[in-house]
């Protein structure tokens, strides 16, 4: 069995956070809590992505020192997942804020943050 490294641990925690977030999304009835769970879900997701991109004993993909300039690809961690996470975080922010705007608007309509109150459309 391979030795367990930091990336496996992070991966595992990432999944746990993701699942906790999912649990929150599915079980909370307060809309704010649901949105909050979404941020947790996103965070878990991001951890997973970064952990996947991480290769042991590599430094950050910032080409500042001279020794990194040669044979770059084998020394740094994969930069792509990190770039993805950056984008994902920004998008996550966008989504979260839009969700909150919705929450606010919903509250204005019915004075309630209880998700079961919003069943006007059904069947």
């Amino acid at each position: 069995m391979e030795k367990i490294g930091i990336e496996q641990i992070s991966l595992a925690f990432g999944f746990i956070i993701l699942m906790l977030g999912l649990w929150g999304i599915l079980s909370r009835k307060n809309i704010i809590k649901i949105v909050l769970s979404f941020t947790l879900f996103d965070t878990g997701l991001n951890i997973i992505i970064v952990a996947i991109g991480y290769l042991k004993n590599k430094t950050a993909p910032i080409l500042d020192s001279a020794e990194l300039q040669t044979d770059t690809a084998s020394k740094i961690v994969d930069p792509l997942p990190q770039a993805l996470v950056l984008t994902s975080i920004v998008i996550g922010l966008g989504v979260t804020s839009l969700l909150l705007v919705y929450a606010l608007k919903l509250y204005k309509e019915k004075k309630s943050l209880f998700i079961n109150d919003y069943k006007d459309l059904k069947w």
């Binding site: 809309i31 969700l99 919705y102 929450a103 608007k105 919903l106 309509e109 919003y118 006007d120 459309l121």
Partner: peptide, 10 residues
């Protein structure tokens, strides 16, 4: 701006 529309969007 009506509750149906907003809740569906949510």
């Amino acid at each position: 701006q009506n509750v149906k529309s907003i809740s569906s969007g949510f």
